[in-house]
Nucleic acid binder design. Structure first.
Lengths: 190, 190, 190, 190
DNA sequence: CATGAATGAGACTTCATTCAT
DNA sequence: CATGAATGAAGTCTCATTCAT
């Protein structure tokens, strides 16, 4: 008896990410995924009930991984600004290093594929930022504004800056990161 | 695109916007547009060569309108900060008042429908911001950073904040606008 | 503008009946129907929402036609036995002349295609027989048994006899019909 | 078909009957049979070359069993009418007690699964009835009509009456059986 | 022998586009 | 010009059968 092979799921995920990067979510089809993953089309249905389930499953997986990577290196004892910078850098670098994954996530975000559960995954990811901002406020460093607004401001900024980098093929240097962070830092401090 | 009946074009545009708002770009189909616009499906092909052309044409039209609306009320002689605030408010309000249109534009942005020309439309819209930022630098108000980065920062922030408002149904007050602007202003000034 | 062509429905019905006769309901597929009817496969979906709807619609249509044909020539004023014989002959002949249709109906009867409404169509058809049997009872000709049982007995007999004829290619003569009727008549009279 | 484990064959048969009763022959699939029988799907292919062979094999088996059960209790020396009644009762009761099996047989009867050999199995079963009818004719009790027609008449009647009972959940009493037999008896006697 | 993961042919259905009216 | 019926390519998904373990 052949055992259900956990590697196949990763194979399918990778094929999906590659195809979406190349041609967009709308052009994604099961036959192509099978071909790219070097699996029969039917095999995908051994691991996923439907195209929708595959997409949601990958979406979940990426969101989880992404959150982990961003917060992984944080050192709670360090000063607020250090943590903030670390978080910011992680966010930007992660978004660039795993561009393919973020592209997939964004393509999904406004698609009809995403189920209700998937649409609420962001909340978790925000938890860490909100806590950090609360600490900043307690230390009288951060403006007394709604955490959601502060976070939206920084994340929106970071996302758009990364998009700019990808489009203009700007190489991310330490100087560039520092500059981008300065913008965010100056905006949120009192 | 023939010019026989400009009203029909607007009818088709409006139907398209409504349908995309309701069900997303992926669910958009020609039969539905015809029905919504109370036109025969074939009629759409009198005005547009293909679905792709219709989408690109509407995309262009919206981008143009949008740029006009944002810059319309600017008074070049006013102080830099006044202009900046006006531009910021316009941008935010416009994005909320014409949410349907921006939703369409965003859905298109990552779709395979958009042609090369459409993908470069942003540049024009940036022109005005870039000029204003140049003035701000000359007046030693604005940080000496790449205009594209500064713009990405502010636009990304504004977009994400608007998304937050739409999601949480936050009513935009003068105070809210002022707060959001403060974040951007504090970030870009020296 | 081309008008929806009512003939097409009949074309599709006929193709379906022919294919089911040849290979059974289980082997029926939409591509084959299109080909047989000399229509594009998509055209079938202009007239029917799904394969299931096509099958139910044809089933309904045949049940209706069938009931009409059986009762059409009845003359209520004639003696009970005349009416009974007429009904019996009509039933048998109709089942043979429209064998293709009855074969389709039978294939459907136990299939997962039939919806709840279709499954109840028989009741109507029984109405006329039940009334006639009631009259026979009033005239003290017919045994005092449940109409449903009497009808099941006669219909079951007729169906199986027709099946025998079709299988052994027995030509239906007046004598044969009279013999078959005698069996039924003798069974139901007191 | 190997003979390694006859129990497994019965397991597969039972699973098949249950599934067909629940959802019809058209919905039957090999994976479901395996699951229901608590066997691996591949195991079925150890005992049967194909789905078709499984179905035909079960069909044969049921036909054989069924014929045995109907004729088992007959006492050749008893009077003709006693034998006839016994046969009739057996037929009806057998059809009700083994409804699941008959349902399967009927679903198969018009399917593309059945091979030529299976389609001719009825003939054997008729043998006993034909002999009995010949005796009835010799005793000048039974009408001088073709055995096949007489048999079709009685079997058709019985089948339809059982169908009625199953549909309306009529409980089979001695009185009911007697009534149903009367119909058949009155029809075939001179 | 027993298993169930793997496969791909083939089924149903959608939809952009054409074209006869 | 206006229409929507007609089309078939292409997409999703099922399932009988095979085969590696």
């Amino acid at each position: 008896m052949k055992l259900k092979d956990p590697d196949k799921i990763q194979l399918i995920y990778n094929a999906t990410l590659k195809l979406v990067k190349e041609s967009g979510l709308a052009a994604l089809n099961m036959a192509a995924i099978g071909k790219e993953a070097k699996l029969g089309m039917g095999t995908i249905y051994v691991y996923f009930k439907s195209k929708e389930e595959l997409i949601n499953s990958l979406f979940h997986s990426l969101k989880r991984l992404n959150t982990q990577r961003i917060y992984a290196t944080l050192t709670p004892d360090a000063p607020f600004k250090i943590n903030m910078k670390e978080l910011f850098d992680n966010y930007i670098i992660n978004r660039i290093d795993y561009f393919e994954e973020h592209f997939f996530v964004e393509q999904c975000s406004n698609s009809h594929y995403l189920d209700a559960e998937s649409r609420q995954l962001d909340e978790e990811a925000f938890h860490g930022v909100f806590e950090l901002l609360d600490r900043g406020k307690k230390e009288l460093l951060v403006k007394d504004m709604d955490n959601a607004v502060l976070t939206a401001h920084m994340m929106g900024s970071a996302n758009e800056i990364v998009a700019l980098c990808m489009k203009q093929k700007i190489k991310i240097t330490k100087a560039f990161l520092d500059g981008a962070f300065t913008l965010c830092w100056d905006s949120i401090i009192r």
